[in-house]
Computed example of a mutant assay.
Amino acid sequence: MLTGSIVALVTPMDITGEIDFHALKELVEFHIKSGTSAIVAVGTSGESSTLNVDDHVKVAMKVLEYAAGRVPVIAGNGANSTSEAITFSKLFANTGIAAGLNVTPYYNKPTQEGLYLHYKNIAEASDLPQILYNVPGRTAVDLLPETVARLAEIPNIIGIKEATGDLNRLAEIKALVSDDFMLYSGDDGTGCDFLLQGGHGVISVTTNVAPADMAEMCRLALSGDTKGAKAIDQKLSPVHDKLFVEANPIPVKWACAELGLIPNAVCRLPLTTLSEQYWEVVRNALKEAKLF
């Protein structure tokens, strides 16, 4: 059962845009030492949309290698093509990857029946456990609670990352699925309340820069310590907000570089580095959260 603070890990790159595997290894060590419960490799924050298939698989497998069984590793395996998502699932099956994080198909805007059949076919193509990932602000499609409930009946669909930021959605899904279906927040700003209202974990951007704080916040929330969890969440609220002044992962990569966690803030096109007008905005958020 994967619970707690789960980092949506950035993918460090050199100045040419090639993967910096030395920096990636250092990031994995940093998170393990800081108490992060699990690592998502090559999710949205890991630039899954700009990595080719070879890089995508290599990054996930290197994170698995570097983690060396100390924390579970989840691999992004979503695509807007069902056949491509099946390919990723088959590549990650029986490797030690704990689960695939499977974003709703973006751009092509399928119906709810199309979403159901998309995930059903992926789940049936391999034994890899699947975590649904609903982020309509990026994909232009919303995986509705009724469809989640249908999918939850498929044995290797084990949970959902719900990134609408709507806490009512959590209650709606909880009412429709079994207690062992895992519920993860994909929205740092509401993640604490999500846990306090019955969620199991946060798949987090903020954890990239504040892993120890996020781990403790999640621990307190899951243990029912509302006051303690909210105190940490309030401290981190500037970071939750300002890491989205431009499209993720642009600000969080810049913040990681600013904190010395990675050598630079290079992203692959069409993503760029953080616009200069936001440097002080993000830097001040880090300072306000006492991360400097």
Rank of each mutant, 00 (worst) to 15 (best):
S83Y: 12
S83A: 15
S83T: 14
E84F: 15
T87N: 09
T87M: 13
T87C: 08
S89N: 11
S89W: 05
K90V: 10
K90H: 05
K90C: 09
L91R: 10
F92D: 10
F92E: 09
A93Y: 04
N94P: 08
A99H: 01
A99Q: 00
G100E: 01
G100M: 00
G100C: 01
L101Y: 06
L101T: 07
N102P: 04
T104M: 11
P105H: 05
Y106N: 05
Y106Q: 05
Y107K: 11
N108T: 10
K109F: 11
K109Q: 13
K109C: 11
K109N: 13
P110W: 04
T111R: 06
T111H: 01
T111K: 04
Q112M: 01
E113H: 11
E113K: 14
G114T: 03
L115N: 11
L117I: 14
L117C: 11
H118A: 07
H118M: 07
Y119V: 00
K120A: 12
K120G: 10
I122N: 03
I122F: 06
A123N: 12
D127H: 14
L128Y: 09
P129H: 06
Q130C: 15
Q130P: 13
Q130H: 12
Q130K: 12
I131N: 01
N134Y: 03
V135A: 07
P136E: 04
P136L: 06
R138T: 02
T139V: 04
T139E: 06
T139C: 02
T139N: 02
A140V: 14
V141K: 02
D142Y: 09
D142F: 09
L144Q: 13
P145V: 01
E146A: 14
E146L: 10
E146H: 09
T147A: 10
A149C: 00
A149T: 00
A152T: 05
I154T: 10
I154A: 05
I154L: 05
P155Q: 04
P155E: 06
P155Y: 07
N156C: 03
N156M: 03
N156A: 05
I157W: 02
I157P: 09
I157F: 04
I157E: 08
G159K: 05
I160T: 08
I160G: 09
K161H: 02
K161T: 02
E162S: 09
E162C: 08
A163N: 07
T164C: 06
G165Y: 03
D166N: 12
D166S: 12
L167P: 08
L167K: 09
L167G: 08
N168K: 15
R169I: 14
L170A: 03
L170C: 03
A171M: 14
A171N: 15
E172V: 14
E172G: 14
E172Q: 15
E172T: 15
I173H: 01
I173D: 05
I173P: 04
I173N: 03
L176C: 07
V177C: 03
S178I: 09
S178Y: 08
D179A: 11
D179L: 09
D180T: 12
F181G: 06
F181V: 02
M182K: 15
